[in-house]
Amino acid sequence: MRPQGALSGVALALGVLEEVARSGPTLTANGIARTLEVPRASAYRMINSLVAEEYLLRHPTLGGFVLGARVQELAHLVAPPTDSPTAEILDSLRQRTGEAVHLVRYSRGRVVIADEDELLPLSSIDRTRRQLGSTAIGRLLLASVPSRPGTLNADPVVETVARTARSSGISLHEHRLIVEEVETNGFAQHIDLGAEGRACVAVPIKAPQGELLACIALAVRGPEPESALRHVPTLLGAAHKLAHATSTGTVSAIR
């Protein structure tokens, strides 16, 4: 075993992530400690920190871990740009609407920022991930899972979303209202009355079986909902194109 402290905090964190990436979800916390030759207590503390910050996720059945949403997001940010139908559709949307358009993926019940518009960046990526009721992106994710208490232990994705909702103070009644609103409208909306003030809408991109894969979100400066709502038909058309491209294998980055 390495002398305690031989691996710095950063080196240990990177080592844990590398081992999970190499070994897959059957590698347990004890296995990580043995492989890295560090004390189990040190490995456990680091793993718990990485899980809390969404760099790792606990696998629900295999006893190990998988890389989390924030690692996937980093991988997307450093990947070389490529020409794709997704980029073309987003560029076209930004030109047609003149507004900020973001592409967001949903991975295992988590929000992953796939393409953030520099024109009007998300006001808080952390809030988008953790306070689901306070953004159109989060409300769309909330609406994709049941709001009834009896269904919360049926699916790891449902449990993840429900846990995030509870931690941000969303009641079952509020969750139910969000589900009804999105089902009625076919999209999510939210008005941010903060210092900057902005109106946002998010339209879903779904798999043929109905699974929520991603969304296109549009944000406008100012708290007037009509400024964002008038673009919904255009966004829905683009979302349909991306959903079709995903189902036919033309676009794989959304999954």
Score class of each variant (00 low, 15 high):
Leu27Trp: 06
Ser42Asp: 15
Ala41Met: 04
Ala6Trp: 10
Val101Asp: 06
Leu90Lys: 02
Arg94Val: 03
Leu7Arg: 03
His244Thr: 13
Ala143Thr: 05
Pro156Asp: 05
Ala202Arg: 02
Glu181Leu: 04
Leu62Thr: 12
Ser92Gly: 13
Glu88Asn: 10
Gly9Glu: 13
Val51Ser: 05
Ser84Asp: 10
Val232Asp: 00
Arg45Tyr: 10
Arg58Met: 05
Ala188Thr: 04
Ser147Ile: 00
Arg198Asp: 01
Phe187Glu: 04
Arg148Thr: 12
Leu212Ser: 09
Gln189Trp: 07
Thr28Cys: 03
Ser134Arg: 13
Leu77Cys: 03
Ile47Asn: 05
Ala238Arg: 09
Thr128Ala: 15
Glu88Tyr: 01
Cys200Ser: 15
Pro225Gly: 09
Ser8Asp: 13
Ser92Arg: 14
Pro81Trp: 08
Val157Pro: 00
Val157His: 03
Arg34Lys: 12
Leu193Pro: 03
Met1Phe: 06
Ser8Gly: 15
Val111Ser: 00
Gly237Met: 04
Asp126Gln: 14
Ala253Glu: 15
His76Pro: 00
Glu226Met: 10
Ala199Lys: 01
Pro3His: 11
Ser84Ile: 03
Ala219Ser: 15
Pro80Glu: 13
Gly222Cys: 07
Leu119Ile: 02
Gly138Gln: 02
Ala162Trp: 10
Ser167Ile: 00
Gly31Ala: 08
Ala13Asn: 10
Met1Gln: 05
Ala217Val: 02
Arg127Gly: 05
Val78Gln: 11
Leu36Arg: 07
Glu53Pro: 00
Leu132Ile: 06
Asn185Gln: 14
Arg58Ser: 13
Gly31Glu: 07
Ile89Arg: 11
Thr128Pro: 02
Leu212His: 04
Ser134Gln: 14
Thr151Gln: 12
Thr35Phe: 00
Val251Pro: 00
Leu7Thr: 02
Thr26Cys: 04
Gly109Tyr: 06
Cys200Tyr: 00
Lys241Tyr: 07
Ile89Met: 09
Gln72Ala: 14
His190Cys: 09
Pro233Ile: 09
Gln72Ile: 02
Glu174Pro: 03
Ala238Cys: 09
His102Gly: 08
Pro80Trp: 05
Lys206Ser: 13
Ala195Asn: 09
Ser107Gly: 02
Ala29Pro: 02
Arg22Asn: 07
Ser42Cys: 05
Ala87Phe: 01
Val16His: 08
Ile47His: 08
Ser42His: 11
Leu122Gln: 08
Val220Pro: 04
Ala33Met: 08
Glu19Cys: 12
Val179Asn: 12
Ala165Trp: 01
Ser124Lys: 07
Arg127His: 11
Lys241Ser: 14
Ser144Glu: 03
Ile170Val: 13
Ile254Trp: 14
Arg94Asn: 06
His102Asp: 15
Gly210Ala: 07
Ala199Leu: 01
Pro85Met: 03
Pro80Lys: 10
Ala143Asn: 04
Gly133Glu: 08
Arg2Tyr: 00
Leu229Val: 09
Ala162Ile: 00
Thr82Ser: 14
Met1Leu: 06
Arg45Met: 09
Val220Met: 03
Gln95Asp: 11
Tyr44Gln: 14
Pro146Gln: 06
Asn48Arg: 15
Ser144Lys: 03
Thr135Arg: 01
Asn185Ala: 14
Arg2Trp: 01
Arg129Tyr: 09
Tyr106Gly: 05
Thr128Gly: 10
Gly15Met: 02
Ser227Met: 11
Glu116Ser: 12
Leu119Ser: 13
Ala21Val: 00
Asp83Gly: 11
Pro204Ala: 07
His175Thr: 04
